[in-house]
Design a protein around this nucleic acid. Structure first.
Ligand SMILES: [Mn+2]
Ligand SMILES: [Mn+2]
Ligand SMILES: [Mn+2]
Ligand SMILES: [Mn+2]
Lengths: 219, 219
DNA sequence: AATTAAATTTAGACAAATCTAAAAATAATT
DNA sequence: AATTATTTTTAGATTTGTCTAAATTTAATT
């Protein structure tokens, strides 16, 4: 009784949005995440609830059951392992792998993904710095803070991003702001949130919006 | 304007069945190949004809147009390259890769498949001995004959099979009849088509049915 | 040539996933 | 508390791909 790729995408969306206060994800939030209508979401929430993959109360919201969480986490594992493969093995750039991984994550074969994990030597993080769950669904956590929160003089290392869009990632590549790079904050304007910092001995500017999507490990 | 994976499977089925006399593939042949009903096939043939991917005359049969052939050949290329990857890179056995490749062949990304080809060092044949079309759709042909056609005393090398089923491939693996192996025909019964041959200095029996699906390069 | 058989198409229904528009429930304002 | 605004659900229609059963065309037999 496998799930359709559409059902899988809903589970993944709910997992991604689960960071809310009471853990209940709203219909509209899911609709926005999946670029679909609220009506479609309601239909699917009923369906996933019938399959006991989510707990759903109408007008209240949805949360993953243990079964649903297991499936969603496995999808994230597959997505991120494939991203590592595409960058590390095939030499793609980090800005072109997300859309392909969105397709590859739906390939059904546990044997395949475990062998891929072995071949890649059990990577802990994907090219965007996101943790890769192991076969049991456990993953590493790292202390990290958005670049936008750093104060003047603070230093750190770029360890990831919070955004998958190609345009955003290409923008960072052009500025040299990729994972592993050491940065130092020069000025962080309290009012308009414009940032000036140093990377590779070069100074550059960033908007607060962009900086909030870059994750830093403090030095 | 991409095609659905269902449309892609129809094009691939028609290509596979195109070895018939006048090149016209029948509705029933496609239905059998895809394990679907003749009525469904008729519906899809109309649709593919409207898209100019096949030439179709009702009650007569279907054949691929140049556009359809290009797409179908590209699918075969992807399928076989992924099979090489699964066996060569991930260490799977040749009997477990076909079903996974059936899924992977529908991943949409030209960049991905060209990089995979480069990574695998441009293989010319897949694990089952089938030729891999290059990016332009051209592929190598090898002189080959079914094992069932060999006469007493003839020798040759196993270079491929004509059947993807797991049970069939496992059967051959157990008998040691895999690509690259040298064989010598002992007896080929003209009436019941039972075969006795030598592989690795061991004698073994085969049914005519099984032997007809093993391809040999004569020595 | 007429009849029977086989292959193919058409007709009509169904499941999955989607949409828009309208109705209902909840939340926010006055 | 009553009104307005927002969110969510329901109703009904649409697209894609499928099915079975009946009708039609083509092929094979007598
Ligand atoms: Mn991604
Ligand atoms: Mn990622
Ligand atoms: Mn195959
Ligand atoms: Mn093959």
């Amino acid at each position: 009784m496998g799930l359709s790729y559409v059902e899988e995408n809903y589970l993944k969306a709910i997992l991604k949005l689960s960071g809310v206060p009471d853990g209940l994800v709203s219909t509209n939030a899911i609709a926005a995440q999946l670029s679909t209508s609220a009506a479609s979401v309601t239909d699917m929430l009923k369906k996933l609830s019938d399959k006991d993959l989510i707990a759903y109360q109408r007008y209240k919201g949805a949360s993953l059951t243990n079964a649903g969480q297991r499936i969603a986490t496995h999808l994230v594992r597959k997505h991120r392992l494939w991203e590592v493969f595409l960058v590390q093995t095939l030499g793609m750039t980090w800005d072109e792998v997300h859309d392909i991984a969105e397709q590859l994550e739906h390939i059904q074969s546990d044997s395949l993904i475990d062998r891929l994990d072995t071949f890649l030597e059990y990577p802990k993080f994907d090219p965007h710095g996101d943790p890769i769950p192991n076969a049991e669904g456990k993953y590493s956590v790292r202390a990290q803070v958005p670049l936008s929160k750093l104060t003047e003089g603070q230093q750190g290392i770029v360890i990831g991003v919070r955004e998958d869009e190609t345009a955003f990632l290409k923008h960072l590549s052009e500025k040299g702001l990729t994972p592993g790079k050491m940065i130092r904050m020069l000025t962080n304007d309290a009012y308009d949130h414009t940032i000036r910092l140093v990377v590779d001995d070069k100074e550059l500017n960033l908007s607060g919006q962009v900086a909030s999507n870059i994750m830093i490990k403090l030095k």
